[in-house]
């Protein structure tokens, strides 16, 4: 199966009621104490081992891809932007290859709009991000819509159990 069609066939994971409660609770944060899963278990009314076993299971099944502290990438010295191109339909494949050829490009999505290609550019500095944007413009011959994040509003995913 090629990379592009893989996600269309991703099976939906079976989550137990406990899984959903664990995910919902852990999204609100994990206590930074010696035995964090014991505190989580106490809040859920189950055993510490059960929490650990379900977490391991969710990671193995790739329902969760990461679990732990979220570092501020900008604080770490990186710079990012969300950018878009309005790609003429016959050019789409060529431009996709050109854009994806940059190591700094991540998360390239085709979207239903005149601006039909949306991707994240990440590099070590704002200057490098701008260089990559300029390089993408020269390589594709298309103007890039550059919309860096100005402010983030915190939200949480909630799975009704």
């Amino acid at each position: 199966m090629d990379k592009q069609s893989r996600q269309a066939t991703t099976p939906v994971a079976e989550l137990t009621a406990l899984d959903k409660r664990i995910i919902n609770l852990l999204q609100r944060g994990l206590p930074v104490v010696e035995r964090p899963f014991l505190e989580i278990a106490q809040q859920l009314g189950c055993h510490e081992d059960e929490v650990l076993e379900r977490l391991n299971h969710l990671m193995t099944n790739k329902v969760l891809t990461r679990f732990g502290p979220m570092f501020d990438a900008v604080c770490l010295g990186g710079a990012f932007t969300l950018a878009a191109l309005a790609v003429p339909e016959p050019e789409f494949e060529r431009v996709t290859e050109q854009v994806n050829s940059f190591d700094e490009v991540a998360h390239n999505y085709r979207r239903s709009h005149d601006f039909n290609m949306w991707f994240v550019v990440g590099a070590e500095s704002a200057e490098q991000v701008n260089n990559v944007i300029n390089d993408i413009e020269s390589k594709t011959g298309l103007p890039v819509l550059n919309t860096p994040k100005l402010e983030e509003f915190y939200v949480q995913l909630y799975l009704p159990a």
């Binding site: 570092f71 990186g78 190591d103 700094e104 991540a106 590099a123």
Partner: peptide, 14 residues
């Protein structure tokens, strides 16, 4: 989705 891996730099964060 045409590319889902993190950018070279984003491997350090999310």
């Amino acid at each position: 989705a045409y590319k889902q891996q993190g950018a070279r730099y984003t491997k350090k964060g999310n």
